[in-house]
């Protein structure tokens, strides 16, 4: 059963046709990535899912039925961490629960035991400005998964990090995901990240976006910290070539 399915979705923003014809699906417990050149419409796709935007054409299905407005299906992690600088980390992390109507005390009680696992122990009462970039991303990720929604939407979660911190965070995410199996849709333009983390990868064309390639990654996990099998390395190469063909130069 597909947790999420998009059928021939298209949308224009003003005069700009952003998504032309996008069809994709994410199975239960599956990790799916969307690769695409910058400006292809990847973030726009997420805005359609979170209900910030209505598609002009096509259908979005959840567990086989049409997506309802204000659906409580997605936990969304925006491109920048979007932590509130005036809230302590613990209160940032429980924002989603607070919006759901969970009391502050109850939400804190649910969040606190997870801080160690997310490498944030001891930073509960700090403000975001006091944390490193990697810690901020982990806090944003904790704020996402704690909402316990059926599908996680991660929009370039590590895009703003330095290479070393990014590698560290990717390993950490792979490790977490192997334990939890969150149904995840990840947007990235990092080919290695996509291959390392995903069960399946969709590649979007440049704007107006269509799906131009779908790749199934079968390499055994964990994939980070070990040499990738030849097949996965070939897939990396092929994906990079496909992407480069879309950058227009």
């Amino acid at each position: 059963m597909n947790a999420l399915e998009l059928r021939n979705v298209g949308v224009s923003l003003g005069e700009t046709e952003v998504l032309d014809d996008v069809s994709l699906r994410v199975g239960q417990g599956e990790f799916v990535s969307i690769l695409g050149p910058s400006g292809a419409g990847k973030s726009t796709l997420f805005r359609l899912l979170t209900g910030a935007l209505e598609p002009d054409r096509g259908e979005i299905l959840l567990d086989g039925s049409t997506l309802k407005r204000n659906a409580t299906t997605f936990a969304f992690m925006p491109q920048r961490d979007a932590l509130m600088p005036w809230r302590r980390i613990i209160d940032n992390v429980i924002l989603g629960l607070e919006v759901q109507g969970v009391s502050r005390a109850e939400a804190r009680a649910r969040a606190l035991p997870l801080f160690a696992e997310f490498g944030l122990a001891g930073f509960e009462e700090r403000y975001p400005a006091e944390l490193s970039g990697g810690m901020r991303q982990r806090a944003a990720l904790l704020r996402t998964v704690i909402q316990a929604r059926p599908v996680q939407l991660l929009d370039e979660p590590f895009g703003a990090l330095d290479a070393l911190t990014r590698a560290q965070m990717q390993r950490w995410l792979e490790d977490r995901w192997r334990g939890a199996r969150w149904t995840t849709l990840l947007v990235t333009h990092d080919v290695r990240e996509a291959v390392a983390l995903s069960d399946r990868i969709y590649v979007l064309s440049r704007r107006p976006a269509r799906v131009i390639s779908e790749v199934v990654v079968r390499a055994p996990r964990p994939r980070l910290g070990t040499a990738l099998p030849a097949e996965a390395r070939a897939q990396e190469e092929e994906l990079l070539n496909t992407l480069l063909s879309q950058t227009g130069e």
């Binding site: 910030a52 204000n70 936990a75 969304f76 979007a82 924002l95 919006v99």
Partner: peptide
């Protein structure tokens, strides 16, 4: 207000008042 924070809250189902 950072528009990303607003988008995030909307994605959580927050009302305009919240």
């Amino acid at each position: 207000t950072d528009p990303e924070i607003e988008t995030l809250m909307r994605s959580m189902g927050a009302s305009r008042w919240k």
